[in-house]
Nucleic acid binder design. Sequence first.
DNA 1: ATACCACTTACAGATTTTGTAAGGTTTGTT
DNA 2: AACAAACCTTACAAAATCTGTAAGTGGTAT
Lengths: 222, 222
Amino acid sequence: MFEIVVVEDDSYLRDELIHVFKKAGYPVYGITSFEHVEEELYERKPQLVILDVNLPGKSGYELCKNLKARASFPILILTARDTLSDELTALGLGADDFLTKPCHPDRLLARVERLLKTYDNLKGMLKVGSLSLDVDTYKLMFQDAHVVLAETEGKILQILMECYPAVVGKGELFAAVWGTDEFVDENILQVNMSRLRKSLSQINLGDIILNKRGQGYVLKDV
Amino acid sequence: MFEIVVVEDDSYLRDELIHVFKKAGYPVYGITSFEHVEEELYERKPQLVILDVNLPGKSGYELCKNLKARASFPILILTARDTLSDELTALGLGADDFLTKPCHPDRLLARVERLLKTYDNLKGMLKVGSLSLDVDTYKLMFQDAHVVLAETEGKILQILMECYPAVVGKGELFAAVWGTDEFVDENILQVNMSRLRKSLSQINLGDIILNKRGQGYVLKDV
DNA sequence: ATACCACTTACAGATTTTGTAAGGTTTGTT
DNA sequence: AACAAACCTTACAAAATCTGTAAGTGGTAT
């Protein structure tokens, strides 16, 4: 949950990186199986990711892009490819920093530390696409606009964002918001859904919650 | 207010930088007098600062450090000094990125764009030392803790932070919070000050507001 | 056509926030 | 030490906001 995750297939370099961070006092974890990296990262919710671009069967760039659309942790790309065009691609896909191998450990640590400091202010932010939700205050930001949602509305949106892109059943929503999955009164969910949609429409997001008849609700791509 | 500010004393290079940003569509302003750079930057509240480290009579590093303690905009250091130790110093003082001259315009633009994207989520954040206040929700963050303040409490803290490190007179506080500087009831300020202090004490900040007898209130260094 | 599911509006109880009132504590001066 | 001015705190009630209930409308699949 608060570790640095190293995504690097060269086991020698990976161990070296792990050693560098351990020595500097960071909790760190190295990915060894690259089949389901993306899912694993969503689960681990690391504090920061060190990402190599040449992964077995994967493009690190593609991974970076996908991660950045859903996750709120910083990504530092570390690669042997040292052309300007590589750097521009990486930054363009949302990478937070770009360093080339070989890289002096002190430089790497300084860059990592800086990213952690910047992202420290973004703690408690849930991100899906271009939406970001502060789960402490239920302030939702989208482009240049924002709304502050009431608690119940905020909780509902939070669940939908956490489950994205899956459809969330009403039972799950009841469980998460009211702490019971017997929906004593089905109506209360709809009322709050209605209120949430109205609040969202203040920032032109009135249509991002879709109903799947008989199944539940999903967040539309944004 | 939303411009990129270039702090560079070499007028040739400065004009070149300005040109690069203008061409990329950014509003940009070049500092030409370096007597009161720091104050000028606090006033301008730029979106981002490009900072040279060799300034006439000033150390860019010192400036960077001071700015970072008070301001919430990103700082990119651009310098001819290209040693690792320079980079470590710059990042250690809070600089958000470090590039060496000569620097390819595309690299500079990509780095700037990335910083702006990251800091976009921090819009509406007021910073003083290690405190940061979201002025939309009055969520105050300090170290790993946070409190969400009520509106009036939040407004008071906001004024104190905006005026830091100056002492704020009661008249000013009344004007800013209640929209009148005749303090009809002096007590209401004290009540809310008391409430604010109690809220702050939840995150061990119960003593950061100092009273200057007969003058007003100040924020203690943090 | 009809039964089911989804949506919306209005209202009232509950909660939170805010200002008023009143009394207590600290500080500086004589 | 006594006093007054400035500052601090607690309790209470009005005001604003949030939340669930109730009741009715609109849409969709069979």
